[in-house]
């Protein structure tokens, strides 16, 4: 399974994301955004502040040629994962629904959160598994926002990947922490699974996520049902 981690100016989580993928058995490469090419099974847009978050988080990266490469690869059957800023980029590119807006109450939050998987469809639903997860968050604009009819459709069609449990970290509507698209092959998560891959980092629930993701992709990208 080949994974490409796309790096924009201002991305800052690419190394730990690549390490986490490699640790889970992906044949992983980092690709500077101008050099991203088709041919991978999985594209990961990591966290950070692509293009300085100018205009809005993800707005400039979403309109760059690299996203056209990612879009074509997805159309050809590849899977795409956005983590934190990568989630914002995928929404701005129209590949995922909703927007991630300023936290309520205001402020940057950097801490561990509890997540409840919501039995989403496809490989990403299988990857988050069925049990409670602990992953860290680090964001100032992570409040999931979408009109009520959009959220209703996400719930109805099994596209909510996970919700926050316990103390509300950012005011996300319906407490949504991650979603998948209608194809089931594009996912976005606000918390950072790549920062939860070793007990020395404080937890390893993220390692299981990447391992199950590789297994699911090796099985043809299907979920459990």
């Amino acid at each position: 399974m080949r994974a490409t981690v796309v790096v924009f100016p201002g991305t800052n989580c690419e190394r730990e994301t690549a390490e986490a993928l490699a640790g889970a058995g992906f044949d992983t490469r980092l690709a500077w955004h101008e050099e991203a090419a088709e041919g991978a099974d999985l594209y990961v847009l990591p966290g950070g502040f692509a293009h300085g978050d100018y205009l809005r988080p993800g707005a400039v990266a979403a309109r760059s040629p690299a996203l056209e490469v990612v879009r074509r690869a997805w159309q050809g059957g590849a899977h795409v994962l956005g983590i934190c800023n990568g989630f914002q980029i995928l929404q701005e590119a129209g590949l995922l629904p909703g927007a991630l807006v300023a936290n309520v109450p205001a402020g940057f939050r950097s801490r561990w959160v509890a997540l409840r998987p919501r039995a989403a469809r496809g490989a990403f639903g299988r990857a988050v598994g069925g049990g409670r997860l602990r992953w860290p968050i680090a964001h100032g604009a992570g409040r999931f926002f979408a009109p009520e009819e959009v959220r209703r459709e996400l719930w109805r069609s099994g596209r909510v990947l996970a919700t926050y449990e316990g103390e509300d970290p950012n005011g996300s509507l319906d407490r949504i922490a991650g979603v998948v698209d209608a194809s089931g092959r594009v996912a976005g998560v606000m918390p950072h699974p790549e920062r939860a891959v070793d007990r020395r980092l404080g937890g390893e629930d993220g390692r299981a996520f990447f391992l199950r993701l590789r297994e699911a992709l090796a099985d043809g990208g299907e979920g459990d049902g």
């Binding site: 205009l55 707005a59 309109r63 701005e92 909703g98 009109p147």
Partner: peptide, 9 residues
Amino acid sequence: ALLANPVSE
């Protein structure tokens, strides 16, 4: 095209 996101702005 760019300056506003109609989902939230």
